[in-house]
Amino acid sequence: MSEQSGQEPGERTANHIAHNARVWDYWLGGKDHYEVDEQVGDQVTSMYPSIGEVARADRAFLGRAVTHLTGQAGIRQYLDIGTGLPTAENTHEVAQRIAPDSRVVYVDNDPIVLTHARVLLTSTDEGATSYVDADARDPAAILRAASGTLDLGRPVAVMMLGILNFILDTAEATSIVRHLLDAVPSGSHLVLTHPTLELGGEGNEAAMRFWNENATPPITARGRAEIEGFLDGLDILEPGLVSCACWRTDGADEGPLVAQFGVVARKP
Rank of each mutant, 00 (worst) to 15 (best):
M1S: 12
S5W: 05
Q7H: 11
Q7G: 03
E8D: 08
P9A: 00
R12Y: 09
N20T: 12
A21H: 12
W27E: 11
G29Q: 13
D32K: 07
H33Y: 15
Y34H: 15
V36A: 03
D37H: 11
Q39P: 03
Q43R: 14
M47V: 01
Y48P: 05
P49C: 08
I51G: 14
G52D: 13
E53K: 13
A55K: 12
R56P: 01
R59Y: 03
R59N: 00
A60Q: 07
F61C: 00
L62H: 02
G63D: 02
R64I: 00
R64C: 01
L69N: 09
T70G: 01
G71H: 07
Q77I: 04
Y78H: 04
L79G: 08
D80G: 01
P86T: 02
P86K: 11
T87G: 07
A88I: 01
A95N: 10
A95V: 01
I98P: 08
S102K: 11
R103Y: 11
R103W: 12
Y106M: 00
D110A: 02
T115D: 14
H116D: 03
H116M: 04
A117L: 04
V119H: 14
S123T: 07
G127W: 09
Y131V: 00
V132D: 04
D135E: 11
A136Q: 04
R137T: 01
R137Q: 06
R144S: 07
A145Q: 12
A145I: 02
T149E: 08
L152S: 03
L152H: 10
L152I: 04
R154F: 02
L161C: 07
G162C: 05
G162D: 14
G162V: 02
G162L: 08
L164C: 06
D169P: 09
D169S: 10
T174F: 02
V177Q: 10
V177Y: 15
R178Y: 08
V184S: 05
V191E: 08
T193C: 01
L197C: 00
E198P: 06
L199C: 04
L199W: 11
E202Y: 09
A206P: 04
A207V: 03
M208L: 09
R209C: 00
E213A: 09
N214M: 11
P217T: 06
A221E: 07
A221R: 07
R224D: 03
A225V: 09
E226D: 15
I227L: 05
L234Y: 15
I236F: 13
I236L: 06
L237H: 10
E238H: 10
P239F: 02
P239T: 03
C244S: 06
C244A: 07
A245R: 03
A245P: 05
R248I: 00
R248Q: 12
R248T: 04
T249H: 10
T249A: 05
G251L: 07
G251W: 15
G255A: 00
P256D: 08
L257N: 11
L257C: 06
G262C: 05
G262H: 06
K267G: 06
P268D: 07
